[in-house]
């Protein structure tokens, strides 16, 4: 290892490591200080708050307790109930299937766009980008509107007997899934498209020449090549889907609550910060576990 004060060249400049690191730290400090102060520190505070007691009026009482986590696990004064765990589990399931369906729809869409002539390709791409950037509240509300009892979709569902005559097609699981998938589909499509556009078709053709089945062509030739874009898409979808609360709030109601609603409740009407913090921790752990599992499985896929 060289000494910190020996001369080195760095991007054409003659200097020392020491000097560079001094200058670098100076430049690093404003942004990092901000992130420490308003990202890392509040995160740590949240951890602390999740193990203190809620006072009678919702204030924090600095007494250590694991009560909040016990409550999240379902232990109440009147025995064990799976209510909160159900909500957590449901959030994982919804996030998983939202991601899965988004991926399944994105592949054909990406191939379709990549196959358009150049001019209309940009138009199609822009058509995917627009909902990507349209405010979530508006898009969630748009489903709320379109599933109203006066409009054909709800009427059709009533004819088939899925819902009573004159009722809206919400709140229920179906409406939540509709909302969630339409919300996150562009989050998968856009990064995936970047990979599909660069796809080396000769490998796909080689697989077909070797009489590989469609499934094998996909897993052997297409999937590995589009993995980078797919991974970004999956992360961009799964993470916010886990914490989503606008869609379930409008389209799921009390019947189909997700963890996002639960957290929002604690910081809103219930004013129970410690419990809200504990649920947030639960959500964070589940998200990290989900990403870890994907990373493991993702690597296996890449190796195959």
């Amino acid at each position: 290892m060289k000494r910190a004060d020996s001369l080195i060249t760095w991007y054409g400049e003659l200097t020392t490591r020491q000097q560079l690191l001094k200058r670098g730290s100076l430049l690093l400090s404003p942004g990092m200080l901000w992130l420490m102060l308003f990202l890392v520190l509040p995160g740590l505070v949240l951890v602390v708050v999740s193990v203190v007691t809620r006072g009678a009026y919702g204030q924090l009482e600095w007494v250590f307790t694991l009560e909040n986590y016990k409550r999240l696990a379902g232990f109440t004064l009147f025995g064990w109930t799976p209510d909160y765990l159900m909500i957590l589990w449901r959030s994982v399931v919804v996030a998983f299937f939202t991601t899965l369906v988004s991926v399944l729809l994105s592949y054909p869409l990406c191939f379709f766009i990549a196959g358009r002539p150049e001019r209309s390709r940009y138009m199609w791409l822009t058509l995917v980008i627009i909902p990507f950037w349209t405010n979530m509240v508006i898009r969630a509300y748009a489903w709320f509107l379109i599933l109203s009892p006066e409009l054909p979709i709800a009427k059709l569902a009533a004819v088939f007997g899925f819902i009573p005559e004159g009722a809206p097609l919400y709140p229920n699981a179906f409406a939540v899934y509709l909302g969630m998938v339409s919300m996150f589909l562009p989050f998968v499509t856009l990064p995936l498209y970047a990979s599909v556009e660069r796809l080396d078709w000769s490998l796909v053709e080689a697989a077909q020449d070797l009489y590989a089945s469609r499934i094998r062509t996909f897993t052997q030739a297409i999937l590995p090549q589009t993995m980078p874009g797919l991974s970004v898409g999956i992360i961009l979808t799964f993470v916010p889907a886990m914490g989503m609360f606008v869609v379930p709030d409008l389209l799921g109601g009390a019947k189909y609550m997700l963890v996002g609603n639960l957290i929002q409740q604690q910081f809103g009407t219930s004013r129970d910060w410690p419990f809200g913090a504990a649920i947030s921790m639960g959500l964070m752990v589940l998200t990290m576990v989900g990403l870890q599992i994907y990373r493991r499985k993702g690597k296996e896929v890449q190796v195959v």
């Binding site: 308003f38 520190l41 957290i263 910060w273 809200g276 959500l283 990290m288």
Partner: peptide
Amino acid sequence: IILHIPVVIPDIILAASLVVA
């Protein structure tokens, strides 16, 4: 890692931690 936190953590957690802070 610090830089990627906002990307890999649901925004509701950032919101909750800000409320508390």
